[in-house]
Design a protein around this nucleic acid. Structure first.
Lengths: 124, 124
DNA sequence: CGACACTAGATGCGCGTGCATCTAATGTCC
DNA sequence: GGACATTAGATGCACGCGCATCTAGTGTCG
């Protein structure tokens, strides 16, 4: 019973922090950098890794998005010229996603705003 | 720099936990109890408090939803007969939201599933 | 080789969300 | 009391999401 109350408390706190931070991030990224949170996070995954190319599948594994959401997010990024799709030679069903110079630039700009929101809301 | 990395790590972990848990909750609540996460959380706020009636505004304060999302969530709950709207006498712009017996029952059923998902994903 | 299960990713669809705006009821100042 | 700003909540709209399904390329038997 007390444990249940603790569980609920923990959950509500997670729910609240997440929504507050995500909401701020979304607004800042959109208003100042024309990026969705998912778009930013996708770029972020592409720059953090050692190599710039990743298969959709690998990308999906380290992200929180459903397969379809990721597919559309990448489509938007391609449309904006921030990312490029390349067909995989070995397995022609596969798709490589590669960040472009423009993508790197946009990510670098947005990263500052991103970090500043995080430092406002997260104690480190 | 190291602090930045820590910040990002903290954020990614929040992002991942939240999405994983929310996704499971959403599925379980929807499949077994025909409730959205937001709908459940709204009912939860109405049963946790000492009184069953709350103004939209008060409800919004303790929740993570935007005003419009809350308004629609309550509308859906009213439609399902789980909650009732009453006009406030003192300020006729205000709206009281009151949980119905059916709402209490539904919430009680769903609560078990809710807690079980939480205990699977949160260490206490 | 040919049929059939399987996998990677794209797409149609319905839905919940936030933003901007609208409506109606309250102040407030003269 | 009358004009105007303000507030509570509802609603039009565009958009990103997950689910189910579709398409196309791979295996795997016979």
């Amino acid at each position: 019973m007390e444990q249940e109350v603790a569980l609920i408390g923990q959950w509500r706190s997670l729910l609240t922090s997440y929504n507050e931070i995500a909401c701020h991030l979304e607004r800042v990224l959109q208003d100042s950098h024309k990026l969705t949170l998912s778009e930013f996070e996708t770029l972020d995954r592409l720059t953090t890794q050692e190599c710039d190319k990743r298969r959709m599948q690998d990308l999906a594994e380290v992200m929180y998005l459903s397969q379809s959401a990721l597919s559309r997010t990448v489509a938007r990024l391609v449309n904006a010229g921030l990312v490029a799709r390349t067909h995989c030679e070995d397995d022609r069903r596969g798709v490589f996603v590669e960040i472009t110079p423009a993508g790197r630039a946009r990510h670098a700009e947005a990263r500052r705003a991103h970090l500043s929101v995080l430092s406002e809301h997260l104690v480190s």
